[in-house]
Amino acid sequence: MTTATKSAYPVPVDDLLPQARQLSADLGELPSRNRLMSELRIGAKKANTLLDLLDTAAPEPHTANLGRLHVVSSADSQESSDEPTQPLPEGHDDEHAPGPEPAESGSANADEPDEPTAQIAPEPVGSEQVSNHASPGPPVVGRPVPRWPVLLLALPAFVAIWSGWVGLGGLTGFGIVHPLPGIWSGFEVNTAITLPIGVETYAAYALRVWLSGRVPQRARRFAKVSALGSLALGALGQIAYHLMTATDMTTAPWWITTLVACLPVAVLGMGAALTHLLHTDPPEVSP
Rank of each mutant, 00 (worst) to 15 (best):
M37N: 05
E39A: 09
L40T: 02
R41T: 06
R41C: 10
R41W: 07
I42G: 01
A44S: 14
A44F: 03
A44M: 04
K45L: 10
K46H: 02
A47W: 00
A47V: 01
T49W: 00
T49N: 13
T49M: 12
L51W: 01
L51N: 02
L51G: 01
D52G: 11
L54G: 04
T56C: 04
A57W: 00
A57T: 15
A58W: 00
A58L: 04
E60L: 08
P61C: 08
H62E: 15
T63I: 10
A64C: 04
L66H: 07
L66C: 06
G67T: 07
G67E: 08
V72W: 03
S73N: 02
A75H: 07
D76F: 00
S77I: 01
S77C: 02
Q78L: 11
E79H: 09
E79N: 13
E79K: 07
S81C: 00
S81P: 01
D82G: 13
E83R: 15
T85C: 10
Q86R: 13
P89F: 03
P89G: 07
P89S: 10
G91R: 11
H92Q: 14
H92A: 05
D94L: 12
D94Q: 09
H96E: 12
A97G: 08
P98A: 04
P100H: 01
P100I: 02
E101H: 04
E101G: 03
E104G: 03
E104Y: 04
S105T: 10
S107Q: 10
N109Y: 03
N109K: 12
N109Q: 12
E112M: 11
E112W: 05
E112F: 07
D114H: 12
E115G: 04
E115F: 06
P116Q: 07
A118T: 15
A118M: 14
I120F: 06
P122R: 05
P124Y: 02
S127E: 15
V130F: 02
S131C: 09
N132R: 11
S135E: 14
P136V: 14
G137T: 13
P138E: 15
P139D: 13
V140W: 07
R143K: 11
R143G: 09
P144Y: 03
P149V: 08
